[in-house]
């Protein structure tokens, strides 16, 4: 390992390392962040939830959105899988159905960034397992 030669050097290393610890830091304070839950039960995995989750993690990081992306069990909307639930800080969670990467992109750009609603919202009348 190369030596850390100055305070500036230390700060640069810290910046580099931070993204690795990002996930841990964020989970300390999820309430202040965008929380996205991807349904990942067997039906979800079969219908491509995994790609959607990878995509969301990548795209939020790249576009500088402070978000926590987690997976959850089947939300009970197998007909509309993959489904994702998005909770903006201080707002009620909203569930979107039939989300592929294209749709996910739209949700990030419109809803998460600007608060505009997009098609495909499933009316919420359920409780997730962690509530």
């Amino acid at each position: 390992m190369a030596k850390v030669k100055s305070l500036a050097d230390l700060k640069r290393i810290k910046e580099e390392l931070q993204s690795k610890m990002d996930l841990r830091e964020k989970s300390n304070n999820p309430e202040g962040l965008v929380q996205i839950k991807v349904a990942m039960a067997t039906c979800g995995i079969a219908s491509g939830a995994k790609e959607v989750m990878d995509f969301l993690i990548d795209v939020t990081a790249k576009r500088g959105i402070q978000a926590v992306v987690t997976q959850t069990g089947c939300m009970g909307y197998c007909y509309a899988e993959p489904t994702i639930e998005v909770k903006l800080p201080g707002k009620e969670p909203i569930v979107f159905g039939d989300v592929d990467t294209k749709k996910a992109d739209e949700i990030v750009e419109k809803y998460i960034k600007n608060g505009e609603l997009v098609d495909g919202i499933i009316p919420v009348n359920y409780k997730t397992i962690d509530n």
């Binding site: 850390v4 305070l7 230390l10 700060k11 290393i13 810290k14 390392l17 931070q18 690795k20 610890m21 830091e25």
Partner: peptide
């Protein structure tokens, strides 16, 4: 590295 990423050794540097 995990220590440094949480401001480790930043106080010493300062």
């Amino acid at each position: 590295d995990e220590y440094i990423s949480r401001d480790g050794y930043a106080a010493l540097g300062k």
